[in-house]
């Protein structure tokens, strides 16, 4: 159990240091506008990437487009999010579609 606790603390400290990295140090180096142009693409790139494995792999294993309830629910949720820009509505509709088709 000691191993578990130490491992958790190590993971927690490493995660914290990554979140702290630029916040801690950015005043020591010049602000380049080109760098901040890159950062504009952080939210769309990362959030989109985090969606991919859950909706294209059935049971986390096989690539599935047909007969994949999560992909259908995700597609409907995408349309809802696009038109209504509302988190609550998107999650509610997405979960209902998932339960409806599976």
């Amino acid at each position: 159990m000691m191993t578990l606790l130490i491992l958790m603390i190590v993971c927690g400290v490493l995660t914290f240091l990554m979140r702290f990295s630029f916040i801690a140090t950015s005043r020591f180096f010049p602000q380049s506008s080109r760098f901040y142009d890159l950062l504009r693409y952080v939210p769309p790139a990362i959030f989109a990437a985090l969606i991919a494995p859950d909706i294209f792999w059935a049971h986390g294993e096989t690539f599935a487009v047909m007969e994949n309830p999560r992909l259908i629910a995700a597609a409907v949720a995408f349309v809802v999010a696009f038109f209504f820009r509302n988190v609550l509505l998107t999650i509610a509709v997405g979960m209902l579609v998932l339960w409806g088709v599976s």
């Binding site: 693409y41 769309p44 959030f47 969606i51 999560r70 999010a81 820009r85 998107t90 339960w99 599976s102």
Partner: peptide
């Protein structure tokens, strides 16, 4: 499938973070 809720959150966040073609 409650874990799907977080994917739905990220779907909304993706859509809302896109304002330009390049995004």
């Amino acid at each position: 499938g409650l874990d799907f809720s977080v994917t739905l959150t990220f779907i909304t966040l993706t859509v809302m973070s896109i304002q330009r073609r390049s995004e």
